[in-house]
Design a protein around this nucleic acid. Structure first.
Lengths: 184, 184
DNA sequence: TAAAATACGGGACGACCGTCCCGGTTAATC
DNA sequence: GATTAACCGGGACGGTCGTCCCGTATTTTA
């Protein structure tokens, strides 16, 4: 066991984490670590001590969100309408991506792998979502032959649609297309 | 007007273009220009003289393919089944992307813009494809509210599905989903 | 075949970025 | 309030990559 962090270290860590979350969400993963340090008002060394690599920083940012999304998915797991549960969560993920460019980059880019967080069940979004998919398929609401890789690709497509500018009408249209496309 | 290129310059230019096409297709746009020069057996200066920037090199590579795809689309423009014409070309584009990682990178990444080639009608793939879309919509075979940005996003999704490994079954499944999703 | 124009090769340069390190500082402990 | 351990800041380092330049080589022209 290690001793608790010193008070200033705790403050800085939290501050970096928050700034990183906001920055990655707004501008994507291409933002330099130096820039995040600058915005957080700390030195680059402080960032890299708490988060040895850029990937570990982003992973830490993602973990909180992931846990929340897994809870959302789990809540829908007992829904009366399995199809609605699945598509509702799909819609939720599109919203999440629209508000988080970093997530989109991680999903699209070959660089970062946000499946790395799946080791812990409480962060395994794809696993939780996969259960919704299975239920929907068992209930006959979703094509039986699709898998989560297909779903992930369709999500990537929906997010790609709004890369340049957020467009509620286009989002609704894409969701309608996916919904019909995936229907049994 | 400028005088014709010297014979050796013509040879080198063609050689670079061919090597670049193969390399970008196989490995994507992240391949360094130095590497393309090396594989073509020329110096980096020779590449950058013919193609001042990496983007201009890729654009030159793309132009040939684009012209061919536009012809393919135009051939389908008079098809008896407007819906089939559109979806057939969609399928054609998915195949193209599967065989050309550079194209996928250009489509997905914010870096390169392959719409830049659209200035010349004979290279305007989206324009030609858009005419197929319109005909399909007028014929009642495709949802009336979708636009080419939606189509492009769905294409990106289909290509995303095969990023890690080519999978004919998954490709057919994705196409079926898109086909149903876009149906009127 | 000699002179002039053109092109070649590949090293150099500059920009960017992630990571590491060290002299100085601050918080915890007694 | 002094000692010690932990932490901070930000410059330095190493790597990558695109672009440019210049001494040399080759082709074209007369």
């Amino acid at each position: 066991m290690s001793r608790p962090l010193r008070a200033d270290a705790q403050r800085n860590r939290a501050r970096v984490l928050q700034v990183a979350a906001e920055t990655f969400a707004k501008e994507g993963l291409s933002v330099p670590v130096h820039e995040i340090a600058r915005r957080a008002g700390v030195g680059t060394g402080t960032v890299s001590r708490h988060f040895p690599t850029k990937e570990s920083l982003f992973e830490a940012v993602l973990l909180e969100r992931m846990a929340q999304l897994v809870r959302t998915a789990s809540e829908r797991a007992g829904d009366d309408e399995p199809g609605e549960a699945f598509f509702g969560f799909f819609s939720r993920m599109v919203e999440e991506g629209a508000a988080n460019k970093g997530l989109v980059d991680a999903l699209a880019g070959a660089g970062y792998d946000f499946h790395a967080t799946a080791a812990d069940p409480s962060h395994d979004v794809m696993g939780a979502w996969g259960r919704l998919l299975r239920r929907g398929q068992d209930a006959g609401a979703i094509r039986a032959d699709v898998d989560m890789a297909d779903v992930k690709a369709l999500l990537a497509g929906c997010l790609d649609r709004e890369r340049d500018a957020l467009d509620p009408a286009a989002r609704a249209r894409m969701l309608a297309i996916v919904r019909r496309g995936l229907g049994a």
